[in-house]
Design a protein around this nucleic acid. Structure first.
Length: 291
DNA sequence: AAGTGAACCTGAAGGC
DNA sequence: TGCCTTCAGGTTCACT
């Protein structure tokens, strides 16, 4: 579910409550999510102080006052919500009222935040494609989950020259190449579709076939759409909410994603958005203006 | 090696 | 109403 902008939004939502907080206890309510929880999961976290919450691609990292680092992935349906500790013991007066199905509340962090407020930070994940793992901080980037990740589409690193290099020689469709986390890390189905539309490039193009001007356009489109989506607090489809319960609103800015049969929004195009399936996933694009 | 498709799991939505 | 199928923001594994 969550792509980079949603994960970054979650990180920013957790930051004010988690940074500087002390973990009093951790309730682990099942043995596994996508993977088994680490050995001594709760014991290793309890008593620690959270120094910072980081993000790499779609992974969240929780850095403590000593090892291990907690690596967390939200999978397709993972989310966090924050309850005030006091409200948590008084049903009906939660920090925010949105009550998700508590059957899928898999982990609860009981913390005391930097102001001494008791908080419950709850990880909910109906599909359980998310996971939590431990890593050694000194070799965090060599951890199996993070080691192979490509360039972040935020900041200045991703330009036309680098994108050309990454795509050179690749025979896969452009869509598939952009979803490959080893090349660019953090893009998912929504933002790949949106970036390709902005760049006027067909998702079916052979990835290695882009010219320099096209690679320039695409790298700009990727960076722009990711930056705008972060600014908007991500996209809220179905059940995605921010840690404070509010919704992101980038979904209102979709040009093609989930807009099959609707007119292409590009000025003067007049085309109609199509849905095709590429490597098992829906691609939305305008066959008229994306070539 | 690179590329494709299935698998993992639950819930929502649509068709009949 | 219920039952069935299809689909969903991701990653990993098995296969060609």
């Amino acid at each position: 579910m969550p792509e980079l902008p949603e994960v970054e939004t979650v990180r920013r939502g957790l930051q004010p409550v988690m940074e500087g907080a002390r973990i009093l206890s951790v309730e682990q309510r099942r043995p596994d999510l996508r993977f088994p929880f680490p050995e001594r999961f709760s014991e290793s976290l309890s008593g620690r102080t959270i120094m910072s919450i980081g993000r790499r691609a779609k992974y969240l990292t929780m850095h403590l006052d000593r090892d291990p680092v907690l690596i967390c992935h939200l999978g397709m349906s993972g989310s966090f919500r924050i309850l005030s500790g006091r409200s948590a013991s008084l049903p009906g007066v939660f920090h925010h009222e949105r009550s998700k199905d508590e059957a899928h509340d898999h982990v609860v962090f009981n913390v005391e935040d930097a102001h001494g407020e008791a908080r419950r930070v709850v990880f909910n994940d109906p599909r359980r494609f998310g996971f939590m793992l431990f890593a050694e901080s000194a070799v965090l980037n060599e951890h199996a989950s993070l080691a192979g990740l490509g360039v972040e589409p935020t900041g200045n690193a991703l330009d036309g020259t680098l994108l050309s290099e990454l795509l050179r020689g690749r025979r896969a469709p452009l869509k598939a190449a952009l979803l490959d986390q080893r090349l660019i890390a953090g893009l998912g189905n929504i933002y790949v579709c949106e970036a390709l539309w902005r760049a006027g490039l067909s998702p079916r193009r052979e990835a290695g076939s882009l010219g320099a001007a096209e690679a320039d356009r695409l790298s700009s489109a990727i960076r722009d759409v990711i930056a705008e989506a972060i600014e908007a607090g991500g996209s809220s489809l179905r059940d995605y909410v921010r840690a404070d319960g509010s919704l992101g609103y980038f979904q209102h800015s979709f040009s093609v994603y989930d807009r099959e049969s609707q007119p292409c929004p590009r000025q003067g195009c007049g085309g109609t958005i199509s849905r095709i399936v590429q490597s098992g996933r829906s691609t939305f694009y305008c066959p008229s203006c994306q070539r």
